[in-house]
Structure formats: structure tokens, C-alpha cells
């Protein structure tokens, strides 16, 4: 059941992105920025966690989930460390994904080469 919910919620979040690509002048980069910022806002209001409880990876895997991770990280860090948490929380919580992207990107660039299309 969780798989179906993940599929539908994740698919819907992507389909909304597709509508934005096809129907507006928004470039993909702007759409991603909007998704992350939307995730941050919903995260601060605690709304997004409810969606994750409902759809699991269907809500955490899209970039809105990344925004939510940033927001939760900041909230937790403030609770723990106070003022400095405002600045450390976001990147600490999202370090896994960002660190992996940087490292695997570097590895890929050592071994890979862009191919002709």
C-alpha cells in the first residue's frame, strides 16, 4: 500500500513540474528552486512531515523533500544549539545527499566522459 501511495504522490509532484515546464516560461532551474523553497516553507509549518508520513519516499525523494530536510534540520539544531543552529542545521541535515552528489560527481568525472548524442 505504501508503494502505491509513494508512486502516486511522487508521480503527482513530478507531473506538476511537467505542467510548469510545458505551460509556463519557467526554466527547469527556476522550477527546482521553487520546489526547494516550497519544501522549506511547508517544512517550517510542519505540513510536509505529514505528507511524508502518508507517502514515504513519494514525498521525501522529490526536491520538496530536500527543502523539508533543510527546514527540519534548522528547527532541530535551534532546539539543540540555539542561535548557531539557524546556520548549521540546514546543511548538516542535508549533508548526506549533497556530499554524495559532490563525491560521486568527482568520481564520475574521473572515469566518465560525456558521449556524443
Amino acid at each position: 500500500m505504501m508503494y502505491l501511495k509513494a508512486f502516486i504522490v511522487g508521480g503527482t509532484l513530478c507531473a506538476i513540474g511537467q505542467i510548469l515546464i510545458d505551460k509556463t516560461k519557467l526554466t527547469p532551474a527556476r522550477i527546482l528552486v521553487s520546489y526547494v523553497v516550497a519544501g522549506v516553507i511547508l517544512g517550517f509549518f510542519g505540513v510536509y512531515d505529514k505528507l511524508i508520513d502518508f507517502a514515504g519516499a513519494g514525498a521525501s525523494v522529490p526536491l520538496t523533500g530536500f527543502g523539508n530536510t533543510l527546514a527540519n534540520g534548522v528547527k532541530e539544531a535551534i532546539a539543540k544549539d540555539g542561535l548557531t543552529g539557524i546556520f548549521t542545521g540546514g546543511l548538516t541535515a542535508s549533508a548526506g545527499g549533497i556530499g554524495a552528489a559532490i563525491f560521486f560527481g568527482l568520481i564520475a568525472s574521473v572515469f566518465g566522459r560525456s558521449s556524443e548524442k
Partner: peptide
Amino acid sequence: GAGTLVPITGFANAVVSPAIEFK
């Protein structure tokens, strides 16, 4: 389209593809 853009895999692709390209 957005199906590979919006998930975190799209973010990774956006980091890895220029890394490879600008080698």
C-alpha cells in the same frame, strides 16, 4: 521530463553532468 528532474536523482544529475562535461 520533470519525472527525472524533480526527484533527488535530478539534483544529482545536475551536479554530475557538468562535472563530467567540464573535465
